[in-house]
Design a protein around this nucleic acid. Sequence first.
DNA 1: AATCTAATTCTTGTATACAAGAACGTTGAC
DNA 2: GTCAACGTTCTTGTATACAAGAATTAGATT
Lengths: 218, 218
Amino acid sequence: MDIRRADLIANELEELVFAGEFADGDRLDEVKLAAHFGVSRTPLREALQRLVASGLAEQIPRRGVFVRQPGPVELMEMFETMAEIEGVCGRLAAMRISEQALDVLVEANKRCQQAIDNSDIDEYYRENEVFHHFIYQQSGNSFLEQEALRLHRRLKPFRRHQLKLRGRMAQSMSEHVAIVSALRAGNPEVAAQALRGHVAIQGEKFHLLMSSLKTAAQ
Amino acid sequence: MDIRRADLIANELEELVFAGEFADGDRLDEVKLAAHFGVSRTPLREALQRLVASGLAEQIPRRGVFVRQPGPVELMEMFETMAEIEGVCGRLAAMRISEQALDVLVEANKRCQQAIDNSDIDEYYRENEVFHHFIYQQSGNSFLEQEALRLHRRLKPFRRHQLKLRGRMAQSMSEHVAIVSALRAGNPEVAAQALRGHVAIQGEKFHLLMSSLKTAAQ
DNA sequence: AATCTAATTCTTGTATACAAGAACGTTGAC
DNA sequence: GTCAACGTTCTTGTATACAAGAATTAGATT
C-alpha cells in the first residue's frame, strides 16, 4: 500500500526540518538518510528535491543539499507576508462572503472561546486554524487560498509559541470578533486591516519571544 | 561544464510547458523525453519532480506525470492574486521607498515611454518588467519579493498577449505614472489600489482576449 | 457481438553500479 | 612550522538493472 516511498520520506523530512531537528546549514547526507529510512538513494534524492523546491533546503551542485532554516530577518519577512496575504483574503472575503459562511465563522469563534475558557492552548490552536483557513476559502479565489495555506503551513512551527504569551489568546480572540464584524459589514479595507494586524502581531510577539530568549541565553 | 543536467532539463521542460507545447492532461513520457534529451530516466525524473513541485504538472502515483495547464478560471484567479500581491508590494513600498529608488522608477518609465514612441512591444514588455520587479524589491521584504517574482514568472506567457490590444500600452504607461506619484506621496492605500488596478486590468484584458478567441473559434 | 478474464506488455518506482568532481590527508619543499 | 601539490577517499550525479502495478490485448464464455 505504501506506494511512492519518496513522497512519504519527503513528508517525514519536512516534518523533521519544521521540528527543528536539523540546524541551519546542516548537510542532508544521502547515504545516511537512505539507510535511516531503509531505502536506496534514488527515492531519497527525490525527497530531497522536494525539500529544495519548497525552500526548506538549498542544493549546491556536486556538494549536496543543506537545510535552510529561516533566520530572524527572513522569519519577520515571512510573518509580514503572511499578514498581508491574510489581509488580501479578508479584503476579498468581505466582498464575497455569504451569511451562512459568516455563521460558520461565528461557530468557529465560539469554539475558540470555549478553548480559552478551558485554557486549552492546543484546542485554541486547532480552532484558530479552522477560522483562518475558512477565511482563505471565503476569498473565493482557490489559487490564493492554496498560496495562503502553503505559507500558513510553513509558519506553523513558529506561530505556536506566541500563543503561550500571557493574555495573547484572549487578545487574539477579540481580534477574531472584530474580523468577523468587519466581514459582516462587508467592509473590505477594515477587514483587510483587521486581519493584517491580527497576523502581524503574531510576528511581533514571536520577535519579542526570540529576543527574550536571546537575552536570557546571554 | 554542464553540471546537473536534471536542472537544465527542468528549465527546458518548464519553457516548453509555458510555451504551450503540451496540452492540458498530456502525459510526460519518461522514456521518450529521456531519449529526446539524450539522458537516462534518472535525471529526467528529477526534472519532472520539479515541474510537479512548481505546479506545472501533476503526478499520479504509478501512472505518470501529466501537464496541468491552468484553465480560464484558474488563470483569472492567478491574475487576481498577482494584482493583490502587487498591491501589497506597493503598499509596503509606499512606506519604505527612498528618493533615489523613486528616481530609478522614473527612469524606467522614461524607457517605457520611449518603447511606446517606437511602438516596440518587446522593449516595452522588458522595461515594464523592470519597473514591476523594482517595486517588488522596494517592498523591503525579500521573501515577498521572491513570491511576487515567482507568480510574475508563472503568468509571463499570459501577460504578453494583452499588450497587443489597441491602446493598452499607452494606458499601462499612464497607470505607471500614477503608481509612481502615489509612491512618491507615500500613500500606501493609493499605491496599493493603483497597482491592484494596473495588474487586475491585465487579467480582464486577457479574459477579453480569451473570450474573443473562443467566439471566433465557434 | 459483447463482455469478462487472463496473460502479455508497458510504465513507473526502486535498487545498484559506475563515473566524475570535491573533500581530505599525506608528503614534500621552503 | 607552514604551505602547496599530489593521491586517496568520499559524495554526488547519472546510467542501468530489476520489481511491481497499470494498461492492453487476446481469448473464452454467454
